[in-house]
């Protein structure tokens, strides 16, 4: 996306070496190799879920590579009077740091930001992916899940990084538990009728204005019960898609391009797949970026290949996320218990 200036000779050199047999890449990878991906969840203490992802960090220097931070925040929205939607909604925003694209002007940066925001938002806020625990009170209150992604550095393949970081942050998101409340004014004559109800509450003397037993649609408001953890995870968190970018250089294609390789590829195909448990994988989004063209008959083969790559990317991301879960939750609990 951020195309640095590249001379014709350089471009031809990179293309020729990618098409050579065996293909050669500047960092010695094969065509389908990814650079090292580093991931950490829970990096933003004030967010409901967060992740930091780096692709291709230089091992000695401690720097370099594409770096993305993603974080989610939950806000309560009013369905009747506010912008809220029954059942909650998800809004994605991508911000590009000017330090990632020092050669771009402010306007160009805004445009890039906007393009990426649209791509992420359209894919992730699709109804098929919507988690169904974002509602609080039907027709009254719901959660707004805002997902913010920040590109701190771009060393190529930023879209894959964004999707992976988004998936990790959403995986990490905890929705606070809520309990519906209903206010009742007690009439003097009702005292006898409510006697049994009050016994259930265990408050025989005090007439409580709170009645939490009726969770039905009569509830007027909600409260946040004080509980030891931060809430429950988002429903359907295994559905969030991963994206693979196929950089097409006929007759072959390659993955995880660096900036220079990106600049010398005429057309790129973005494929976002979701792999829900116990069902067929879904293709959630597909985009072409660039000015080249692809023959329709190739597309099917590319799709099948893309699904294969996405699957392996998904599997390794899943393993890492489960590791992180253990590191942050189970181990932390054990540590606490020892103390």
């Amino acid at each position: 996306m951020a195309v640095p200036s590249l001379s014709k000779a350089e471009r031809a050199y990179i293309q020729a070496s990618l098409q050579a047999s065996p293909p050669l890449r500047a960092d010695g990878r094969s065509l389908l190799d990814f650079r090292t991906v580093l991931l950490e969840t829970g990096v933003a203490p004030l967010a409901n879920g967060s992740a930091k992802l780096n692709i291709g960090k230089a091992p000695q220097e401690g720097g370099g590579g594409t770096e993305v931070i993603a974080a989610t925040k939950l806000e309560v929205e009013d369905v009747e009077t506010g912008d809220g939607v029954d059942g909650g909604r998800l809004v994605c925003t991508v911000t590009c740091s000017p330090s990632a694209y020092p050669h771009l002007s402010t306007n160009a940066l805004d445009e890039l930001q906007y393009d990426l925001t649209i791509l992420l938002h359209q894919t992730l806020s699709h109804p098929t992916l919507h988690p169904n625990n974002l509602g609080i009170l039907p027709h009254k209150k719901s959660w707004l899940l805002s997902l913010d992604l920040v590109i701190l550095a771009d060393a190529g393949n930023v879209v894959d990084a964004l999707f992976m970081a988004a998936r990790a942050a959403l995986w990490d998101t905890k929705v606070p538990r809520t309990r519906p409340l209903q206010y009742q004014s007690r009439k003097a004559g009702d005292a006898l009728k409510n006697a049994d109800a009050m016994e259930v509450e265990g408050l025989p003397e005090i007439t409580s204005a709170f009645d939490t037993r009726d969770m039905a649609r009569a509830a007027a408001d909600f409260e946040l019960p004080d509980y030891w953890d931060e809430g429950e995870v988002l429903e359907g968190r295994d559905r969030w898609p991963v994206c693979v970018t196929l950089n097409l250089l006929p007759p072959s294609h390659f993955l995880d391009a660096t900036l220079l390789e990106e600049a010398s590829t005429p057309i790129r195909l973005l494929l976002a797949y979701s792999f829900p448990h116990k069902s067929q994988p879904n293709l959630q989004a597909m985009r072409f970026i660039g000015s080249g063209e692809v023959v329709l008959t190739q597309l099917k083969a590319l799709n099948a290949d893309g699904e294969k790559y996405a699957r392996s990317l998904f599997d390794s991301l899943e393993t890492k996320l489960r590791d992180e879960d253990i590191r942050r939750n189970v181990k932390a609990r054990d540590k606490f218990a020892v103390r």
């Binding site: 989610t72 925003t93 913010d148």
Partner: peptide
């Protein structure tokens, strides 16, 4: 000098324009 405050840096999420 250009400054950018990330929306999730504070307790309440607030998008600040540049």
């Amino acid at each position: 000098v250009e400054m950018n405050v990330l929306p999730f840096s504070t307790g309440e999420r607030r998008r600040r324009a540049r």
